[in-house]
Design a protein around this nucleic acid. Sequence first.
RNA 1: GCGAGGGUUGCCCAGCCCGGUCAAAGGCGCCGGACUUAAGAUCCGGUUUCGAAGGAAUUCGAGGGUUCGAAUCCCUCCCCUCGCACCA
Length: 963
Amino acid sequence: MIMEQNYKPAIIEKKWQNIWSQDKVFEAEPDSRDKYFITIPYPYLNGNLHAGHTRTFTIGDVIARHKRMQGYNVLYPMGFHVTGTPIVGLAELIANREPQTMEVYSKFHGIPKDILEGLDSPEKIVEYFSVEAEKAMRSIGYSIDWRRKFTTTDETYKKFIEWQYNLLYEKGLIVKGSHPVKWCPNDDNPVEDHDILRGEEATIVDYTLIKFTYDGMILPCATLRPETTFGVTNLWINPDVEYVKAKVKTDEYEETWIVSEEAYNKLTYTDRKVEFIEKISGLDIIGIKVKNPLTDSEVITLPASFVRGGNGSGVVMSVPAHAPYDYLALKDLHDKDLSEYGITENLQNIQLIPLIDVPEYGEYPAVEAVEEFGVHDQNDPKAESATKMVYRREFHGGTLKENTGKYAGTKVSKIKDLLTQDLIDEKIGEIFYEFSEPVVCRCGTPCVVNMVKGQWFLNYSNPEWKDKVYRCIENMDIIPEELRVEFNNKVDWLKDKACARKKGLGTRLPFDKDWLIESLGDSTVYMSYYIVAKFLSEDIKTEQLVPELFDHVLLGKGSVQDAAERSGIDASVIESMREDFNYWYPVNLRSSGKDLIPNHLLFFLFHHVAIFKEENWPRAIAINGFVSLEGQKMSKSKGPLLTLSEAVKDYGADISRMYILSSAEQTQDADWKNSGIESARRQVDRFYHFAKDTIDTKCTSGACKEKQLIDRWIQSRLQQRISETNEALKSIRTRQALQNSFFLLLNDVKWYQRRGGKTLQYDILDTWVRLMAPFTPHICEEIWSEMEETQGYVSLEKYPEYDPQFIDRDAEAGEELIGNTFSDVEEIIKVTGIKPQKLVLYTASQWKSEAFKQALELQRQGDLNPGILIKKLMQDPEMRPYGKEVPKFAKKVVDDIKAMKEDKFEMVSGFDLDEKETLKEAINFFEKEIGCEVQIAREGEETYDPEKKARFAAPMRPAIYLE
RNA sequence: GCGAGGGUUGCCCAGCCCGGUCAAAGGCGCCGGACUUAAGAUCCGGUUUCGAAGGAAUUCGAGGGUUCGAAUCCCUCCCCUCGCACCA
């Protein structure tokens, strides 16, 4: 078959996809080769695959193809994620013909209207999008082993998930507890982010409640800094706020609390039982003496208008040594007559109690900050700045003083959780949740924090579990390496996670069937399921997937016979499953978008270390950035969106791949632009035409023919491009890889042809096609099949590898001499405006070359300086005749050499060609390019030199005469 | 606020770890030229400023500092993006 005149991606791509599929080229089976198991997170099917998927999946495919060509047995599988609520929600929206959804899914997801209207149940949605997703991934040429695909609602997969959750439960890693959620009292339901009218940004903050006591009752103070309880001098009560006396009951106690009315309402939503007793005025509890439960000291309650009933409990601790507001408020009361509150004592006698040492301040940070900022009183806006400054400095640099007893010396940044836990244990403190800002539901009702009780949690805060994860990360490659610290931070930050839901698709918790397993929790170790999945197409029934089977296949527990007996599956089949697992596991690389770091990837690690032996823990994680569309964020539910299939339809698979791979590196975000992909089209086109030209002219390998300087040069260059490409792919830098394998190499090829290179054209193509195959596999397959001396699939060929024997420093230095000389000539022509009639190039005379060599030699020995060089040169009788010029030349040479970087120095000192001969070889090139007669001469020889230019010649820098 | 990443020549971005050939790779855009009946594609050149001999001057978020020498190292500041959870 003859290659088409013009590059027609659609035809070529379809053709090769069919051939790969028919020939099962990417169906991986264990064999004697080393294996490489690469996975990317399966897509969630509430829409079609888009440009974001295109990036992550294509990166995965490039690595898979690269490793495969490097001789690894590569497994790149794929499945579909459908568990959770969004698909259920989408089905409802479609069933209700919700206008925006219908618009977005027909316009951006490209679903024909009649089909879209039929997608009114979760099952139909899953069916439709799984078919579309597979079609899309095949259309872009991913080298996926499709025999292993599955959907997370498959009954067989549910068996696998049940097995996993039972295992975690047995290991005590799933525990029951309560957790706070945003709650609308009117709807009597949790509010999700899109149900929120105001306060979308709000987070749930955990305050510590300190139980001050008075006359058998409790005045709880909410604080974010429980350690300051040691420094409390008084409490603040707002005389204008309504307070409530109430009975508060938990499993452990029954107490009487006094809190603001609003706080009382909030308490009714917590996991405490509260019973209203009576309303009281703030006035009633001002001027009383309460007991600090931590220090047992008695402090007075004082009036303060800044206390808000809606904030915390409405009772506030005052720590004037460290809180500017408290200090200011207290100072304001100094001269006030408080007899109306029944307070007669002199407040000036209240002593500030410092409890934190911080380098920036002395005894009383709040006092210093107030002076530093020049704050007048508590209503001065500068009070806020002073507060922030004190808090920040204390949090980062502060340690607790002696008066904090056993906590003395603890860093402020570490004290909160520690102390709060102790307070809870001693029953003098509790946790109280509150929003960081008010939250209002869509229905207009202010939301509260509600405790959901009896919730199942994955016990991620378990320190032993975390330690294993840290160890796992330590032994993994994190690509790029800078993110390692981020992973460790996130492990540190991770708390217990609710792992069960009432709504959505998924698997029921095997030990509590009222609950569904949360959808991120069922996607943590499924990479092992790909290995099992291959066997399930045979006649294995769902019921046969008993725990003993998974125990044996995935963990090596129990005997084959036992597993066979329990499951009723042939022992031989179970044995192959086990062998396959042993062969493919662990995961060599999981490549993913950066949005999954704090969730999926973390859980992926946690569950692996919990379930598998250390030898089966993941080996590497790679991270890539997002994709935007012409500068706009994509959105599945609102648009804009570019689907994978639309990109392939409009531009072709190879061009789309090339574009997305070259537009951004690693964690950088990519912006998909029309103008960008248009130019990618032209690039691929150039490659096609170079190949076509080579094939049409029926050239064959010139490897055995005699080589010119330029041939040796391109061979050498090619090796560098190969080396750089392989290096870049090693750390998943696809942009850098393409930069070398395509753009820079293309420029090299252009120079090669311009310089008249011909002999190695076929050999260049041979290497180039293999080099490009992971990126643009279809066009490479097509070219490969048309080349004279090739056979088989380029997808399975050997990837080019760096071969130092082709590195040719002489040729590179020679070409550099020619190139530099040529651009110097061009610049002279440009600056002078001369229309060249004749060009003479004078290479440096013998003595200069000799001096240069000696200078290089001295540099190598490490003692190059002008003095030594001149001395050494002048000892040489051959140099004597040039005695006047030597010192000046020597100085210049020394400067030049000193400024050289290592590889430049290596290249220059390795140069052993005769410059005159080198330029002579390129004389045709100069004549063609400059368009005039060219002579090459050497300084000092009898030659045409009307303007005495020859004397400016230096090694690697010939003098130039133009007329 | 906390954590992570980033600000380079019209744009996208490489270089920064390991200071010197860095006016700074590559791509895009734009300008000019060649080819062509023409357009496109392709190829060549230019794209901070000055320059009638291959040169020089000023640049790498801002300001300081270290150094013979800084886009690269140190300090301070400004600005941008992302994550902060029970949602996939």
